[in-house]
Write a protein that binds this DNA or RNA. Structure first.
Lengths: 255, 255
DNA sequence: TTTCTTTAAGTGGTCAGACCACAGTATACA
DNA sequence: TGTATACTGTGGTCTGACCACTTAAAGAAA
């Protein structure tokens, strides 16, 4: 019984706007950072009402493709690609994602990313990594500052992997973990040791040792996970029969 | 210089709706498949205009959290979690994702998923996998039917992994590759051999051999990739100067 | 001139109410 | 009994007005 693909496209007008923008992106008329015409103008151009246009723009904004700035204008998103601010967070709330699952996902992604970076990174990436490592060592006494370079380091690895899809996924995961990471970093933790691990990862990438880069990255992330007190519960293979979710057990939804 | 996190939240009213729905999801008032009140009612409840309410609903629909059915109502999404229909496709168009990158991502995810499934799968998952394998063998002469069971097989592995986040990402990737896969499967390819490989993967999972499950899954996917004639191009790391995309070169934008 | 304040223009955000389009059900008619 | 029609409920679109934020220009004060 081949059930047909549902394919519930959004309403006609919305799709009209979405497709229009998409076409402009695909043929190069619109690039990241560009500003699109004012709503009133664009609506007139597309022969639709401003309300409908706004529906379409809102849709694109939700996907993270457009950035809207009140009183200024609407722009095509730039910077590292991601899947939108709330997407993961929201789906997580809906399906009860747990923080150990976030970490597991992150480890799988970043170990792969590190290995790829060891194979494909270019000089510019390696230089950037070296710089971030240096900055990390320079800010071991400033947790807030340190975190910025930590994030930058992992982001550069993602870029160096040569796979923007993996990078985008990683970006989405990491950004939704940002808050809890900040708290963790701010309360103690040996930043000097952490910086040292980053340096080792950098060296493995620079000397093109994928297996070692992978191993070091995994070691680093598992340590970070433990520091956050989120060791994966033992035994228990997924929810057994009952209790899909008790209402509000705070230890869970760390999204 | 720690630049502050931009954090451009959407407009006030939109967030009001989003947060309201989110709260209802988090406290269990709203569950997958549930219908939310009619727009006119809900707008009155939240003391906002219907237009603003619709902006918020549209936002949620874009994230894949809500499903809107014209003339029927608006529902909380059910079924396997994903990141929305267009998200990957659109971001891909914006950043020039290529099909070999899709495959690379898929391989990384699914090999990890297979290994986890070998560790954590329960009887029900194994039974479901066995059934899908049987169905695949039974439909080796019906490509369309075969694909359905193929997809189901991989989806069950994702579930069996016990990590819904990885499953959701996988779901998003796979669904955006669905079209090109259908074409591939429909034109030749030895489905009997393919079914055999799935059976081997199933056996590795059933006998709890993560490493073997991973190896077999990788082998399977690489073969599928080659069948699609999408071997990763050599040299060329990212788009050089010119020719981002000629209009309709089918080999590239397999999104 | 320089600086601060005020004003204006441009752009997105919200509102109100009307009407259109679709899906499912109830009703009337054959 | 069965088919065609009308009705009801729900989302989709339109119009046009007004609000809120941002920026820059114009004017006033130093």
């Amino acid at each position: 019984m081949a059930r047909a693909k549902p394919d519930q496209q959004e309403s006609h007008r919305t799709m009209q706007v979405v497709n229009h923008v998409r076409a402009m992106i695909e043929n190069g008329t619109l690039k990241p950072g560009d500003k699109i015409p004012p709503e009133r103008d664009l609506a007139r151009t597309l022969l639709i009402s401003r309300a409908s246009l706004r529906t379409g723009i809102g849709y694109l904004a939700a996907l993270g493709v457009m950035k809207i700035r009140h009183g200024v204008g609407t722009f095509v998103a730039d910077g590292p690609p991601d899947f939108g601010q709330d997407s993961l967070s929201f789906i997580g709330a809906l399906h009860g994602f747990q923080s150990w699952q976030m970490f597991e996902t992150r480890i799988l992604l970043e170990t792969g990313l590190a290995a790829l970076a060891a194979e494909r990174s270019r000089d510019e990436h390696q230089a950037a990594l070296a710089e971030e490592v240096a900055e990390m060592f320079a800010s071991v006494d400033n947790p807030t500052e340190y975190l910025i370079h930590d994030v930058a380091f992992h982001r550069i690895i993602a870029q160096a992997s040569g796979n923007p899809i993996l990078a985008a996924i990683m970006e989405t995961i990491v950004s939704s973990m940002y808050d809890s990471r900040r708290k963790t970093v701010e309360r103690s933790i040996d930043l000097r040791e952490s910086a040292g691990m980053h340096r080792e990862i950098y060296r493995a990438i620079r000397t093109r040792k994928p297996a070692e880069a992978r191993r070091l990255m995994e070691q680093h992330l598992r340590m970070a996970q433990e520091a956050q007190g989120l060791e994966r519960p033992v035994g228990k293979r997924g929810p057994t029969s009952g209790e899909k979710n008790g209402s509000a057990d705070e230890s869970q939804s760390a999204l």
